[in-house]
Amino acid sequence: MISREARDIIVNGLWKQNPGLVQLLGLCPLLAISNSVVNSLSLGLATTLVMTVASVSVSLLRNFIPHEIRIPTFVLIIAAAVTVVDLLMNAYVHPLYLVLGVFIPLITTNCIVLARVETFASKRSTFSSVLDAVMMGLGLTLVLVVLGALREVGGKGTLFSGLDLALGPAARDWVVTVLPDYQGFLLAILPPGAFIGLGLLIALKNGIEAMRQARRVQPVPAL
């Protein structure tokens, strides 16, 4: 059984307060790197990892960090976590590291990481903080992957292209060609495609919410 608090954290991270669709935090990497599923997934997981490490550290240290200088301290902790991820990716998935480039170090400045640390981890227990960081990270990753899939299928007609960058040359054959003989639709790959795609996803989420709301409100019997 999971507690009510844990369930709230999960629902908030994945849906209700989704960082990509509701809080609209961390949009820079979201828009810049979401041009394929593989890029989206790897950046999303890297961000999740950084968030988890940062949240654990801050929540453990929360009683020792002076309130006045908490933001610089948080940023230093986040930067340390990002450096670790950066070096790990450089060592083990080097081709992918080259593709993602500056967006790995830029996780440091991603506001979603600092926002969760400041508003959640610095005030709550370690267990809740870890759960929150993982759920928020996965929520962001989910949006990234959906947007990446939309843009990849729309722009190139494939899915999972570039998987060999992460998993070695054996994965080169795993690329799924969704639309054969596709001419390519550059707009979806270019930055405007990210903005339009994210806008459509936000509209879809709001539409689903509105529909659920309407269903909940309707059965009020007239007296």
């Binding site: 001419q183 639709f185 550059l186 707009l187 979806a188 270019l190 405007p192």
Partner: peptide, 8 residues
């Protein structure tokens, strides 16, 4: 604009 960016 959408066309010229997408299908030059």
């Amino acid at each position: 604009a959408a066309l010229i960016v997408s299908f030059p």
